[in-house]
């Protein structure tokens, strides 16, 4: 371990101020592993030296925050929410007469979740238009998402081969998602602690594996903002380890198979 307590505290404070994500003691390994590539590319001998170097350089702070707040991502991550989307949520919306769905993929990282949603709806509900707003804090992730280009390793992670064949084309060493799917997703920089992004009110929100990083007060605050950005009959997907129960009682939990989805309670 090369990270001093002082360095860790600096990074934890910076990340908390910029993203509200709590990095508690014991997460030193996370800071080490996420910042190691930055340290290497900056020519620093180790992460500790790298952080000492950027402390006074405010232009580098965003890089540090991005590295700590970006999650690994895969296509159709965990599958269940996408099954619920296809079998329950979209049919309900379509049954109510919706012909256009506004969807928010929050903390979208490099866009796999947003594009997975777009592909599922394109394949199963051909008459339905989708406008997906994909947001993240990290500019580098948004740029990657916008490009729609993924390496072979990224393509391998969870993307069913029939969808690869149908929606992607190979361009040299990478695969690029086709323009029709790309056009249904708009990437915007957004901090969940600020105002919700343009593009709402949203019929469906994916806010998965984000709340786990926040304390209860921040979770409640984020859920309230999300509710304010949703259609009254909208649906919210959270990560498997997350719930509104005990945090914000303005949501109704609906069990669908092994998975659950949330709806704003009326009048809240």
């Amino acid at each position: 371990m090369t990270l001093t307590a002082d360095t860790f505290d600096f990074v934890a404070t910076l990340v908390r101020q910029k993203s509200a994500i709590q990095l508690e003691r014991g997460k030193e390994y996370l800071v080490e592993s996420r910042l190691a590539p930055l340290a290497r590319s900056a020519g620093a001998v180790d992460v500790d030296a790298f952080v000492r170097g950027v402390r006074g350089d405010i232009t580098k702070h965003d890089l540090v925050v991005e590295a700590l707040t970006t999650n690994e991502t895969s296509w159709f991550r965990d599958i269940n929410p996408f099954t619920v989307l296809r079998t329950t949520v979209v049919p309900d919306m379509v049954g109510k007469g919706r012909r256009e769905l506004k969807i928010w993929s929050a903390a979208c990282s490099s866009g796999q979740e947003a594009y997975s949603i777009a592909m599922i709806i394109a394949d199963n509900f051909p008459g339905i238009r989708t406008q997906i707003t994909a947001t993240d804090l990290a500019e580098n992730m948004l740029a990657k998402g916008r490009s729609g280009e993924y390496s072979q390793l990224e393509i391998n992670r969870g993307l069913p081969a029939p969808m690869l064949v149908k929606h992607f084309e190979r361009t040299g060493p990478t695969f690029r998602i086709n323009q029709q799917i790309r056009n249904s997703v708009t990437f915007r920089k957004n901090n969940l602690l600020d105002q919700p992004p343009m593009g709402g009110p949203f019929d469906i929100v994916f806010l998965r594996n984000v709340l786990i990083y926040f304390d209860v007060a921040t979770k409640r605050d984020v859920l309230k903002r999300v509710r304010g950005a949703m259609a009254p009959d909208g649906y919210l997907f959270l990560g498997a380890a997350e719930t509104t129960i005990g945090v914000d009682e303005a949501w109704e939990r609906i069990q669908v198979g092994n998975s659950s989805v949330y709806k704003p309670r009326e009048g809240k």
Binding site: R77, D78, G239, A240, N258
Partner: peptide, 9 residues
């Protein structure tokens, strides 16, 4: 559908 789905965090 050949192995159980274990949701990740």
């Amino acid at each position: 559908g050949l192995v159980e789905i274990e949701e990740t965090v």
